[in-house]
Nucleic acid binder design. Structure first.
Lengths: 239, 239
DNA sequence: ACAACCCTCTGACAGAAGTCATGGCGCGCT
DNA sequence: AGCGCGCCATGACTTCTGTCAGAGGGTTGT
């Protein structure tokens, strides 16, 4: 493990990402040399739905909302990208326009790789392709779970699901519960649960009354995770 | 077409599938030798949600419903697999249980490849991995479109979308319109549009009154495709 | 300090779609 | 034939959730 890289600290970023962690040090170096670091302030757009695909992005710091909009301005967050995850890959791989808009949830730091560079790197590292396939499979699963949820679950359940998902991805253990360490507005949560701000607020108030969650200076704290998980029950349902 | 022994004709099956068509003839042969042909009658289950993943499947003939269920028996069809498409890949790639149930919509013929065999074949054919990545990307896009639709569109729109999708995948040009050549019940359509039979029936009746569709001996015929497409407008929405 | 703005919260009301109940039609089966 | 069964169809009623309207708190900027 004698990585003699120009910029060891940055290559380490890849090193920490499950998807890349099995690559040789020299390949990590090469991959890194193909990347550019980009920063976006909270609320800035990284790309818009229907833009021509240029880059694949890796989240280094911060979170990115991947959303779709209607003509009248309503939004749905179809996916979130957290540190260590990639986004924009659908478009990069098939050359079609980006299928959704990417917006910084807070100040983010990204690595971007151009379509062409990434492809040639991928050709030289076939095992990475397998990693990516696995990753995409995971995403598909999640998307299908979301579809099921939207199709069959009531709002409360969907919001509970969103909270649990967020706590898994960005949860911080606290004295009494798990705090979601993200600058989320109720509108954001509504967009993730495919509902309106008003209902989200109402549901969260109810959850609070029931002792399931709490809010402290903007952050949401899950007080009774187990109970929330029971409502959702992502489990198996055999016919 | 009961060619049980004519190997050449079966290898041709792969030849016709976009995903495999670029492979060398000898690789196609090898791939085929790893496959088993399986047949399922209409309504039979190919695998159940939560089953341990054994095989990757390629649809040769017929269609497969990929669905999720609730405890109380309601179903959502999260995806359909048509001839030339693969399914079960999420589970095969990451080794987790199948995320949904696969059921034959009509009598189907499948090729199945075991997890291990497919992996080794994939290792020897890195370009196939790229094809698969592209395919998964396409699926993700579709899943996200579905999410958007469920989140923001009213039932009529969603049903129109389902009809259009079906006509694209299994449409047959007719004297006056496109006929959907599948043995679909209203319940199936309801499960695809994430609604109930009753509403599906009501909406289809309205569509019929409006001259958009017609039904002839069970089959649905799209009479005014353009109009339906206008309702749906899969287009781009930039912020 | 004040305004302007965004976010949160609450109440009243409306409407889309689900639920329940019932009937008819076609088809296979004994 | 006659029966049961699955699928299509329609009406009446319910309810969940979205819509609209307004009020309060907190923060930023001038």
């Amino acid at each position: 493990m004698g990585a003699e890289s120009a910029d060891a600290s940055k290559v380490n970023i890849f090193w920490k990402i499950p998807m890349f962690e099995f690559l040789e040090a020299e390949e990590l170096d090469r991959l890194y040399s193909l990347c550019a670091t980009e920063r976006f302030a909270k609320g800035e757009y990284i790309f818009l739905e229907c833009d021509q695909p240029k880059n694949l992005y890796v989240v280094v710091k911060g979170e990115v909302k991947l959303l779709k909009q209607t003509e009248d301005g309503r939004e749905t967050i179809v996916e979130m990208a957290y540190p260590g995850e990639i986004f924009g890959e659908e478009a990069v791989f098939d050359g079609q326009p980006y299928p959704m808009t990417a917006q910084a949830l807070e100040d983010v730091e990204l690595l971007s790789i151009s379509r062409g560079d990434f492809f040639s790197f991928l050709r030289d590292n076939p095992d990475l392709a397998l990693e990516i396939i696995t990753e995409l499979g995971k995403r598909l699963r999640e998307a299908q779970n979301t579809i099921r949820a939207l199709a069959m679950e009531r709002v409360e359940w969907r919001i509970a699901r969103v909270l649990l998902m967020l706590s898994r991805k960005a949860g911080v253990m606290e004295a009494d519960g798990v705090s979601i360490d993200l600058p989320l507005t109720r509108q954001d949560i509504a967009d993730m649960a495919a509902t309106t701000v008003e209902t989200t607020i109402r549901v969260l108030s109810n959850f609070k009354k029931m002792g399931l969650v709490d809010t402290e200076k903007g952050k949401i704290i899950l007080r009774d995770r187990k109970h929330l998980e029971e409502m959702v029950s992502e489990g198996c349902r055999q016919p």
